[in-house]
């Protein structure tokens, strides 16, 4: 799965238009928008294993699951980012990342798309001016070949 995404990303990267140092982002769908996080921070992409809900947990926590013996806290990014929540599909995935506290966090996303390589000129980094509730998680926006990707700050997402 990861390999497939990588090859697709590499194909796209060959067509990268901009100039300057290049960063790799994994893009995915949440609600009806496309988002991206830095690829290097994503450890694994998983099909959702059985998840055990944790009573009394914040509403954005879907529950806990086990990935080869590792206990993972699964967070629904759509709730964190105040987006529309659609029913799960067979495309639903979990992005596995490690928080600075060492906690293994799984990010629940609607669909994983591909890896894109963005040159500096393809990105617009966020300024403090956006002013929405979720701006603390937003790194900026990417515009590869006319597309629009909201780039998220993974470290802010998994520690919050």
């Amino acid at each position: 799965m990861v390999d497939l995404v990588r090859t697709r990303g590499e194909r796209l990267a060959r067509r990268a238009s901009g100039r300057g140092p290049v960063r790799e982002f994994l893009t995915f769908v949440l609600g009806s928008d496309v988002f991206g996080v830095e690829l290097a921070r994503v450890k694994e992409i998983l099909s959702p294993p059985p998840i055990t809900p944790v009573p009394r947990a914040p509403s954005e926590v879907v529950g806990v699951c086990s990935v080869r013996g590792l206990l993972v806290t699964v967070v629904d990014l759509r709730i964190r980012l105040k987006l529309e929540v659609r029913p799960d599909t067979r495309r639903t995935r979990i992005l596995l990342a490690t928080a600075s506290s060492g906690e293994a966090v799984g990010l629940w996303v609607d669909e994983v798309l591909q890896v894109v390589r963005l040159a500096e000129t393809d990105m617009e980094l966020a300024t403090a001016g956006i002013g929405t509730e979720v701006s603390e998680y937003v790194l900026g926006v990417g515009r590869p070949q006319g597309e629009f990707i909201v780039l998220l700050d993974l470290s802010a997402l998994v520690t919050g």
Binding site: P49, P50, I51, T52, V54, P55, R56, A57, P58, V61, V64, C65, S66, G69, L71, V72, T73, V75, A99, S101, G102, E103, A104, V105
Partner: peptide
């Protein structure tokens, strides 16, 4: 349980049940 569940009272942790479930 992970740090993000630290405020949840009532659970000492989680354990694997054997059928991939927790």
């Amino acid at each position: 349980l992970g740090r993000s569940l630290a405020s949840v009272r009532g659970f000492a942790g989680a354990t694997e049940l054997g059928d991939q479930r927790v």
